[in-house]
Every structure is written in structure tokens, then in C-alpha cells.
Amino acid sequence: MRANIWRTPTLFIAILLLLPLILTNYGVKLTSEVLIMAIFVMSLGLIIGFAGLVSLGHAAFFGLGAYVVALLGTHLDNTYVLIIAAAVISGIVAFVSGLLFIRSSGAYFLMITLAFGQMLFAIFYKMESVTGGADGMAVSASLNLGFGAIESRVGFYYLVTIAFLVSYYLLRVFISSPLGKGVRGIKENESRMTALGYNIRHYKLIVYSLSGMLAGFAGALYAYFNQYVSPDLLHWMFSGQALIMVIVGGVGTLVGPAIGAGFFVILQSYISSYTDRWPMIMGVIFVAIVLYGRGGILQIAMLLWNKLRPKRHKEEETPILPKEGNGFESVKG
């Protein structure tokens, strides 16, 4: 049993580390983008799938993180300071806005986060003198972790890989921690949690702030990756895309959103190289996924795996969707 638990992550890490050897330069770049998106989408998946807070303004924190690197980067060059500042500022903004938003839930929460995201978008869009307005701005800070500037695509890839793995690991610990379990309980049954003595607002606020912080961290990485930021990063369209990635990947799990991000980014780049009408084709694919696999790609993959895998033991039922909801059980097969 123990070997089983370790096999999958080890294999996955090995693949991630060896990938640059077989990929083209473009492939490495695309995978880096996937991993950054995966961090961002996991942060959104955390509040949607575990806290039941469906936000349509999460890109605001991603964009904010990216702009912190772009704007502060013109004054100082320390990568650590910039990335930590991006995460902390995004986290603080999430905390302060959360103080107001957390009181609402469901469609109201969705609308208020949408409005907040658009408000931040408008600020960055209008402040042309500082942010360059609609034209965006170049990121001048160089990526340097203390052992020389990281300029190669492969170097950056490894940095993002480590960032992704660490984020994933921390999220996994989070959802299994007392706080994470409490958050899950609140999604299940708020009135019972209150009766048990939990202050549910504190829990929602903490998870929302942490999620905003992680989104800001992903945004900071994206700023280094893209060398350019624009207000589009804060726009609700981008929030909507992230929401689609969560749903398509699998709500209520951790790996689901990451898979959704990979699927979305790769599919987008692949289809858009053939036709300008790529959004239409992707729309059809997403509708099909959501219609035929309510648990998203993760569930479809599990169904296929259960059908196709070699039948070594006759009756060894694997649950299709993880009951625990951390998504990890479902991939170990």
C-alpha cells in the first residue's frame, strides 16, 4: 500500500523533471505556462471545490501579483522580494476585500467578486501614467535567485516546476489540516459547523486570503514568464477561463484544476495554430466534457482507466470520485 502511495507522485515528478529533454523549445515554454496556470487554477479550485466560494474575479489577484512584479521591478531587482511582495500584497487585498465579500454566498458572492475584479481592472486600465493603460507594460526585473540570472527557457521551466510542486504539496497539506477540514465542513454544512462552535466567517476569510495569495504568486511567476503584463490579466474573461479550467478539470479535487489548466492551455495553443475559430471548437469540447463527465476530465479518465486497465484482481472496486475530496486517491488507481 505504501509503495502505491509513493509511486504516482514520484513518477509524475520524474516526468516533469525529464520533460525538457524530449520537448522542443516551444514545448518547454508551453509547459511552463501550463504549470503557472495550474498554480493559479488550483488556488481558485481551493475556494470553489473546498470552501464552496465560486468567484468570478480571481484573475484580479493573479493580475495584481503580475503588476506588483512589473511596477516594483522598475525600482528594485531582487526576485525574492518581488515574488514575496506580489503574494503578500495579493493576499492582503484578498483579506480586506474578503472582509466584505465573505458575508455573501452563492450567486451574490459570484457577482460581488466579479464587480471587484472589474474595479481593479479599471484601475490598472485607467492609470495610464503608471501602468501604461491598455498597452500594458514590460517587465524589466530580471529573474535571479542568487546564483546568476535565469535566462534560458529550461532554467525557468525548472523554477516553475519547483514552484508548482511546492504549491501542490502545501495545498495538499492544507486540505488535510485541521483548518482545511474545517473549510470542507463549512462547504458541507454551515449550520452544523456553527452549532459545533466554528466561526465560519474566520475560516472562509482565511482560505480566501490564502487563495488570493497563491493566485498573486502565480501572477508574479507569469510576469517573469511573459516579460510583459497587461490589464487583460485582471479582466473577468480571464477569471471565467480559470473557472472553466476548474470545472473541466474536476471540482472538489486538487489535481483536477491542474489537469484542467493543462488541458485548456495546450488545447488552446494546438487548435489556435489551425484555425482562428478556436474558441468555438473549445466551447464545444467543454460542453461535451461537462455533459458527459460531471466530475470533469478527472472522472472521465478514471472511468476509462477502470474499463481499460488490466484486470489483475477480479473485484477491486476503485471509487470513481474521491470521497475525501483531496483528489489524490483518485489518481493512484
Binding site: 489540516s177 485541521p178 483548518l179 474545517g182 465542513g185 462552535g197
Partner: peptide
Amino acid sequence: ENIHLAVTACKPYRFHFLKPAS
């Protein structure tokens, strides 16, 4: 898990998030 939640509710470690509940 139901009982875990009920037991943790008033414990000082209810806000801890760096260690699995188990």
C-alpha cells in the same frame, strides 16, 4: 470525519494548516 470536526471545534489547533489533521 464527522467526529473529527466536532472534536476539533474548540481546540486551540483548529486553525493550524501546516500539519495533517491525522
